[in-house]
Design a protein around this nucleic acid. Structure first.
Lengths: 151, 151
DNA sequence: CGAATATCAGTGACACTGAAATTA
DNA sequence: CTAATTTCAGTGGCACTGATATTC
């Protein structure tokens, strides 16, 4: 009884979780498709975007912005560096640190990336009326604030 | 933390995509944590849930419900079978097909799973007022309908 | 010395494609 | 023979932990 995860839009937490999961999967998939022509994976694209409006930053900082552990950020940067989109330099002020910045090619790639991102986002959310988008943004913000990693 | 001032809640599609991504990641992570004590991964738990209220079903059907390709469903079922939670039988009516059903242990496991799922969902969405949950459910439904896989 | 930074090595979880076996 | 069903083999993308070198 009351196992209503069939399909009733009742607003139960469990139903929301399921919807959320499915939707995010679709969106991720779409995003990957949009990015493939640019030779970027979603994670790489996100890193590139962060680096685009931050100035040269350390791996730890980048990891923080991406919400991943530093070790994982290293791998992302490896790929971007190999693709020639970012450069690594040792921080002269602290030789433990590495400063990552966009290369010229990286900045160039950002152009296509911006367009692609916009298209992908419109693809996903463009069908929503303005009011719903605002409501969704507000609610997602609230949720994001509510879910704190107790880490 | 990281209350990024650079991202005003403007309801732009790109911002929504970003919010959505971050949130879904958090939720997935939480979900995995909740499931770990049960010895299940999120994908396995979802499959188990589908099998719980469908009757014995073929791999293709299960894959359809999980929104994955049949080959991937096989792997999930492999794990569940190895854990003794589901059983495979050849469909007597069509020997190409395999009928997957919950074992007794699988049904037993569903008890803990239900509780866990509820806790996880409440953990994620419980903070939302009723009206927001309803609005969110409605909007997510709309989005889900709008995003058609051109498969 | 203890703490921070980045990296190396290995692993887990997820889902994909392409190819093969079996049966309809 | 064609089509459907499942499975095998391999791969990609993502992020994790634990251990190590370097530097502060």
């Amino acid at each position: 009884m009351t196992t209503d995860d069939s399909n009733a839009p009742d607003g139960s937490a469990a139903e929301l979780a399921e919807l959320f999961f499915r939707l995010s999967k679709r969106i991720r998939h779409r995003s990957a498709e949009h990015l493939a022509p640019l030779g970027l994976t979603p994670a790489q694209a996100r890193a590139l975007r962060v680096l685009h409006h931050e100035k040269p930053m350390r791996i730890v900082a980048l990891a923080g912005r991406l919400d991943i552990v530093p070790r994982s950020a290293t791998t992302v940067v490896d790929a971007l560096e190999q693709a020639g989109l970012v450069t690594r330099e040792t921080d002269p002020a602290d030789r433990r640190s590495v400063l990552v910045s966009l290369s010229a090619a990286g900045r160039e790639r950002m152009r296509g990336l911006h367009a692609s991102r916009r298209r992908a986002a419109e693809d996903a959310f463009g069908s929503l009326p303005e009011s719903d988008r605002a409501a969704l943004a507000r609610i997602l913000h609230a949720l994001h604030g509510a879910i704190n990693d107790p880490k």
